[in-house]
Nucleic acid binder design. Structure first.
Lengths: 219, 219
DNA sequence: TAGATTGTTAATCGATTAACAATC
DNA sequence: TAGATTGTTAATCGATTAACAATC
């Protein structure tokens, strides 16, 4: 289990997309937009946009539409981007390092405070001024640093154990890149990025037509 | 638009997960499993498992359940993992390099054939014996190499242009890591990994309770 | 004011779950 | 054969779309 959301998950997963489109509009100095115009840009129904937004309040104005800047700021707040977050990365392999180097997240308010690994060769090395530390020091580090999000980038064999350790030390949100379904208590927020699952749906789709050819022909 | 699937997308997105669990069972020498047992392990309904699998055929046996090895092999085929794929990576930044170094994909049959970038400093450098090439050579390369999947790891400003170039050169499947909604013709398969969207849903969920506190209290 | 567009309720559609006859 | 479990149809649930009164 992971923490249950109040608003349905399909709605939440669309919010970042709205935010991206509104940012674009704002950048292009568009002042107002109707749900219909936005729906055409995004390839969704105007109804869905209005329904989605109304989970959080009525931000539009009849006969006018939505004020772009206002809606953008509102979405920024809804997504929690008006706050900053302290993060740590567990696992300084390829992916962990790539994320550590990815300064876009930093710019959005996700501040990397530490990187941990089990490989002694990496200890002391720095990525963007942040030292790679021995994962043995994890508990000590978490006791003296308030960390909001742990980013898990380790091979799957150790990731449940590591998740347990993180949670025991008070971590309430995990961004998991390990290709495994972690078990977490339901006050912990778990967000998965299953790269391999994503790639497999791609290879599935490359083959689907051939796979189901006989079936389709039957119809 | 991207290519429409025959089987509903929610089903397809669950297939890699079934595959992972079956692999685990196979590793543990489990010979057979019923939909009920599997449902308990996976935290889904037995009904859903049977419905999902029956999109592809009846692989079980009444009174017995499913043969683990057989079902695993079937899922491997369904996911297209009985074939190999030639891939290229566009963008040798942090993420592109991380994916290039990630040998797990290679092991599953996704063979990296080339890496491209615009940065001359990177030309000639090798990642796992694969040279980073000038993206100017992309069209020539694609003309003489049959590539199944292009992995797009470049900043969003250029990614639509790059996608257009790839498609013009005959690429039929794109694994996109750029934080943007690419427009592709509907014979091209597009699979997105929107890391920032994923992170934003995490920060959303950290704040949801506070955000909706008043609303929830009203009820 | 008249036209436009929202917020919201109602209708539809699709996905999930339940039920059970078929059958190993 | 009796018990178990599938494949599949029917029922339910939830999400999306349509419709429209409210209102700027």
């Amino acid at each position: 289990m992971t923490k249950k959301t109040i608003v349905p998950m399909p709605v939440i997963r669309r919010l970042p997309r709205y935010h991206r489109y509104l940012e674009e509009l704002l950048k292009n100095d568009v002042k107002r937009i109707s749900s219909r115009e936005l729906s055409e840009k995004m390839g969704v129904t105007a109804s869905q946009i209005r329904q989605d937004l109304n989970n959080y309040g009525g931000f539009g104005q009849q006969g006018y539409g939505y004020n772009v800047e206002e809606l953008y700021n509102t979405l920024t707040k809804i997504l929690g981007l008006d706050k900053t977050y302290s993060t740590i990365i567990i696992g300084a392999g390829n992916l962990g390092q790539a994320i550590a180097n990815y300064t876009n997240f930093e710019r959005t308010g996700f501040n990397l405070k530490g990187i941990f690994d089990i490989n002694p060769k990496l200890f002391g090395l720095k990525i963007r001024d942040i030292e790679i530390m021995d994962v043995d020091n994890l508990e000590d580090f978490l006791a003296s640093n308030k960390i909001d999000i742990a980013i898990l980038c380790i091979p799957k064999d150790n990731s449940q154990i590591m998740a347990d350790r993180l949670i025991k030390s008070g971590i309430k949100a995990i961004w998991n890149f390990s290709p495994i379904d972690l078990k977490v208590p339901d006050d912990v927020i778990l967000e998965n990025v299953h790269l391999s699952d994503s790639l497999l749906t791609l290879s599935y789709r490359i083959n689907e037509e051939n796979l189901l050819k006989t079936k389709v022909e039957e119809k």
